[in-house]
Design a protein around this nucleic acid. Structure first.
Length: 271
DNA sequence: AGATGTCCCTGGAAGC
DNA sequence: TGCTTCCAGGGACATC
């Protein structure tokens, strides 16, 4: 499932190649999570200025308006001069003067949404409430601690909510908490300052490493250029229920928090 | 207001 | 073997 690192790797894999391309056609497949928000014809002739990212959203900055792309949990992008005819799971083709950008998404949790407001695309409701970028300067310790103080919920759930920090999904939440030695069930507000500092550092480290390795959590993940061969990151706890912890050999425990799987080591993450 | 539950969707795994 | 059920996930929305 694409989390922030996979989205960032995808962005880097086609951002330069699509820059200054002109939209020549738009082909839609089955409905995605949300409607496009404009008629496909309205996009014709527009120029792709740049490809940015906010959390797990990719932002195709056009000369007028922005296309928001979300990969959901099974989505992937391809960008190539020529692509085979769209298959049953190909739901969005942006045909440009420099190649075809295609969203492939079997489970259709992904989305492509057009936002007209060029001046303040961040004000869009999908982006407005997102917390700071974990790999940017805005993610500083004092603010992070202040956010955690506001929530009595379990720290794992607070991380997933995306207010304290954006882009930390289910996999990296478990991994970062393991690295910080913090039990996922502990109330966010009750974490001491040194422990918040450790968690802050762990989040940055885990995500940064995953981006460097090329978006590693998705077994069949490939970048938009079609380059495969990822999956290099060995998770410490995620998906390892019952297996020995890589550090202390205690069996990794699996619990449910808010209908989602959480993995942790009872020995390495005592409280 | 904050916290919790529900829903969307479908391929693959697990259970019978 | 063939069927059914369950599960995974992000994020908006509804409901306590």
């Amino acid at each position: 499932m694409p989390e922030l690192p996979e989205v960032e790797v995808t962005r880097r894999s086609f951002a330069a190649a699509i820059e200054n391309a002109t939209v020549q056609a738009v082909q839609l497949g089955k409905p995605l999570r949300w409607p496009l928000g404009c008629l496909p014809e309205q996009l014709l002739g527009r120029c792709v200025r740049s490809v940015g990212r906010r959390g797990k959203y990719l932002l195709l900055q056009l000369d007028q308006g922005v296309l928001l792309l979300h990969l959901g949990m099974s989505g992937s992008l391809r960008f190539a001069p020529v692509l085979p005819a769209a298959g049953v799971h190909d739901h969005f083709d942006l045909v440009t003067s420099q190649g075809i950008l295609r969203l492939h998404d079997p489970r259709r949790f992904g989305a492509v949404v057009y936002v007209d407001n060029l001046a303040a695309p961040m004000a869009h409701k999908l982006l407005g409430r997102l917390g700071p970028e974990p790999l940017g300067d805005a993610f500083e310790l004092a603010g992070f601690q202040a956010q955690l103080k506001r929530h009595q919920m379990a720290i794992k759930s607070v991380l997933l909510a995306g207010e304290a920090v954006v882009g930390v999904g289910n996999i990296y939440a478990s991994e970062a908490l393991f690295q910080a030695g913090i039990r996922p069930t502990v109330s966010a507000a009750r974490l001491s300052r040194p422990r918040v500092a450790r968690l802050h550092a762990a989040i940055v480290k885990v995500l940064d490493q995953a981006v460097t390795l090329g978006g590693s959590t998705l077994r069949d993940f490939s970048s938009a250029s079609g380059q495969a061969g990822y999956f290099q990151l060995q998770t410490m706890v995620y998906g390892r229920a019952g297996l020995p912890c890589h550090v202390c050999a205690s069996p990794v425990r699996l619990i449910k928090q808010g209908q989602r799987a959480t993995f942790y080591c009872v020995t390495c993450q005592k409280s």
